[in-house]
Amino acid sequence: MNSSLVLQAKNLSKTFSLGAEDLYVLKEIDLALPRSSSLSIRGESGCGKTTLLNLLARIEQADRGELTWNHRLMRCDRPATREEVAQRASFLGVVYQAYYLVPELDVLENVTLPARITGRFDPSIEDRARFLLEQMGVGNKSSQIPGKLSGGERQRVAIARALINRPEVLLADEPTGNLDERTGEEVMDLLLHACSEEGASLILVTHNLAFAQATDRQTFLSGGQLNEV
């Protein structure tokens, strides 16, 4: 195993059963992500991009395949173990098309929530959260509640939240899908900038060719196969 790879997937396959017939979404996918690099995945709607991210995050069980997070080698045909879940909290950050902020918490509490989950919450985390929010250009919103933010602002908060635990890999699933073009560009710039700043590797799912080309490597998912472009 190459130790400069932060995440590696081998032979990942996933089938959904739709009643009588099976839907082969992913077929023996291999993927290697070097440390501090970025990778984009494009593909038609419904081709399995979100499913792939879910497999990489061990949120979903695969039919077959192996996955390595840093040095942890995991079999993907079984549910995530306790240790894997615990590692996921610090290893991965996730950003989705929908922001999924907790409406009962204010922005600062939302951003620090992953640190609470990993048990690393302390006052210095709040400083880091403020720093990240500042970087994302929403430093003045830290005591707002999510319900009073615009979509772009929410996505920036979600990115700050994904980065709070200094994850080694950031999974972003169409983070700009809900934003207009200009805001989308802004958010994408911030995302790429923050990832390189934090030394986090990025897997970006997007439909936007320009955003995809901003990453180190570009791939295209179709027919269950992942091809480098």
Partner: peptide
């Protein structure tokens, strides 16, 4: 429901 999914995705047991 979606928040619950997210909490698990963020590493909540």
């Amino acid at each position: 429901i979606r928040e619950i999914g997210l909490l698990v995705a963020m590493g909540g047991a």
